[in-house]
Design a protein around this nucleic acid. Structure first.
Length: 180
DNA sequence: GATGTCAATGGGGGAA
DNA sequence: TTCCCCCATTGACATC
């Protein structure tokens, strides 16, 4: 318990209990295992505030001043900012991933709906082709026509292409030629 | 004991 | 060369 108190005091002061910070590549020769430093609430809150203003440290002087203010080694402040940026990035990646997942799901549903609609049109065309006045697009050489009057709401007014290999439904006009 | 969090390490790259 | 940054990883500690 006493040992813990000593460590807490050290942490409050920003002093690593078992090692000297501020150098790169220093080992933990003394104890044989590195102790974990936990920043105090005050230190974390202060660093958070600074991070909100600016996610990078700026000049060396700025870093040293901040370190002095918090009773930390400049290297510790530097490391805190690095880790904080990494956490921010990770969080953003997770948010982006979720957005993409939702977007994919929406597109998958839309694709399914369009495929179904296409299948219906193909069936409709094969049973009563006379209802589909068709002309050839001189540019892309595909057959293009307008959906017959009386079609359901989703297909009415749309243009469609009929091709031996491909069939396309378009929401907008074909850009190939005026015939489309 | 498994898992998560976070300070810290070490290596590599870019800029001055 | 030095400094700063990013990235992957480590290890101590907390929580379940």
């Amino acid at each position: 318990m006493e040992e813990e108190n000593d460590r807490d005091t050290a942490l409050t002061l920003g002093i690593c209990p078992s090692r000297e910070f501020g150098k790169r590549g220093d080992g933990d020769e003394e104890s044989g295992s590195r102790k974990k430093l936990k920043l105090t609430k005050e230190q974390s809150a202060f660093l958070e505030e600074r991070f909100k203003e600016q996610s990078t440290l700026g000049s060396m002087a700025q870093k040293q001043a901040l370190a002095k203010q918090l009773n930390l080694q400049p290297r510790q402040v530097e490391v805190w900012f690095q880790n904080r940026r990494a956490r921010t990035k990770l969080k953003k990646t997770e948010v982006d991933r979720e957005l993409l997942r939702k977007c994919f799901e929406r597109l998958r549903k839309e694709n399914g709906r369009l495929l179904k609609e296409l299948q219906q049109l193909k069936t409709q065309y094969s049973t009563s082709p006379h209802e589909f006045p068709v002309v050839m697009c001189p540019s892309c050489e595909r057959m293009v026509g307008a959906a017959a009057a009386g079609d359901n709401a989703t297909t009415a007014g749309r243009k469609f292409y009929l091709d031996s290999k491909r069939s396309h439904l378009l929401d907008g006009p074909c850009t190939h030629s005026a015939a489309c």
